[in-house]
Amino acid sequence: MGRAGAATRRRLALGTAVLSAAALLAVAVPQEAQAATGCAGRKVRTLHFATGSVLVHKRGGYVCAVTVPEKPGTKRQMSVSVRARGGRAVVDSGRFAHRAGPVTVHAGKRCVWVTGKVSKSSVSSGWILC
C-alpha cells in the first residue's frame, strides 16, 4: 500500500477521533445541565422574578421545573409547582438553601402552568408549552 495507504489510514483515524470526541461532548453537556437542575431534557423556559428563577425543562411528554434563588446558600421558603391542563399540580415546598424541586408531570401535548416562589416574591407562567 505504501505512503498513500498510510495517509488514508491516518486521516480515517483522525476523523474517527474527532467524531468520538464530538459524541462525548454531546452526551456530557446535557448530563451536566441535568445535574445542576435535577431535570432531564432541554431547557424550554426560564421564568425570572425578583428573588429567583424557575427553570422549565421538557423531554418527550414530560415537563420538569426547578426554582432557584438569586442568592443561594441561605435556607428560606421556596416552592415550585407544575400542573398539566386537566390534572393536579405537583408541588415541592419548604425551606431550602439551593433549590425547590425538581417536580415533573406527564403533560403529553397539553399546556402546563408553572409557578415558583422564593421568600415573598413569586412567578406564575399562565398556560405555556401548548
Rank of each mutant, 00 (worst) to 15 (best):
G2W: 11
A4M: 05
A7E: 13
R9G: 05
R11C: 04
A13C: 00
L14H: 02
L14V: 07
A17G: 02
V18R: 10
V18H: 01
L19I: 02
S20F: 05
L24T: 05
L24A: 09
P30L: 04
Q31V: 11
Q31Y: 13
A33K: 06
Q34T: 10
G38Q: 03
A40S: 12
V44Y: 01
R45G: 03
L47Q: 04
L47H: 04
H48M: 07
F49N: 11
A50R: 08
G60H: 14
C64P: 06
A65V: 02
P69G: 12
P69S: 02
E70P: 00
K71C: 07
T74Q: 14
M78W: 14
S79I: 00
V80G: 06
V82T: 01
R83I: 00
A84C: 12
G86W: 06
G87A: 14
A89Q: 01
A89P: 05
V90E: 11
S93H: 12
G94R: 15
G94A: 00
G101V: 09
V103C: 06
V103D: 01
V103G: 14
G108C: 07
K109L: 02
K109V: 05
R110F: 02
R110A: 09
V112R: 06
V114C: 14
T115N: 15
K117S: 13
S119W: 04
K120N: 08
V123L: 04
L129M: 13
C130N: 08
C130E: 12
